[in-house]
Amino acid sequence: MRPIRSIGLAVTALLVLSACQAYNLAESGKSIELAKSFSMTPARDWNLAVNGKVQIWTIEGPILQRMQVFNGIEDGKPLVEALSADQDKKPPVFEASMTPIEIRDLFVATIARVSQLNLETGELRPEAVADEAGFRFEYNYTDKNGVDKRGFVLATTRNDRLYLFDYAAVALYYYERYINDAEQLVKSLSASAA
C-alpha cells in the first residue's frame, strides 16, 4: 500500500513542508551564516527555504535538484527533528564523537527512515570543509516514481555540531547541469571566528 500513496503523499509532504516557509532569494555574493560556525557565499542566485536546522537551496525546485544543509545538528539530536516525534521507533541520532563512517551510516539510516529510500553509497574519503577535517561520499538511488537520482555528501563536525551538505539531483541532465554551482557553494564555506 505504501508505494501507491507515496506519489500523492510526496506532494502533500512537500506542500506541508513548504507551506510554512517560502523560498527567499539567496543572492549571488551575499554571505549566509550557518549557526555561527561557518558562512557560505553563493556565486549565483539560489532559492533558499529554511526549516528549523535544515536549509534547502535550490535553483530548479527540490524535485529536480537541491542542496540540503543540515546546519549545526547538536550532539544527541536526529538530523531531522520530526523523527523525534515517532513514538514507536527511536530516531538515529548524531553524536559529537562520531567518526565519518558512523555519520555516513547515520545519514543513510535517516534517509531510510524519513523517505523509505535505499541509498547506495560510493567511496568515503577525507575532504576538508573550510579547513576543518571533513569527509565526502557520493551516492545514488531511484526514487519512488522510478527517477534515478545522484548525490554527494560533504560533512564536518565543528564545536560538537554536525554540518552536513547534501546535494542531490535527477541523474539525467540535472546532476551535471548544476554540479559546479553545488561545488561552488561548499567551496565557499569559511569558518567563522569561534
Binding site: 506532494v11 523560498y23 530548479e60 529536480l64 516514481n145 541523474a171 539525467l172 541532465y173
Partner: peptide, 27 residues
Amino acid sequence: LQIVKLANAVGSSILLHEYLPQLKLPT
C-alpha cells in the same frame, strides 16, 4: 523511460512553483 519520468518531474515542478504563489522560486 528516464526521460519520460523526468518530464513528469518537470511537470510537477512547474505546477508547484509556477502556480502555487507560496512556492514561487524567486530566481
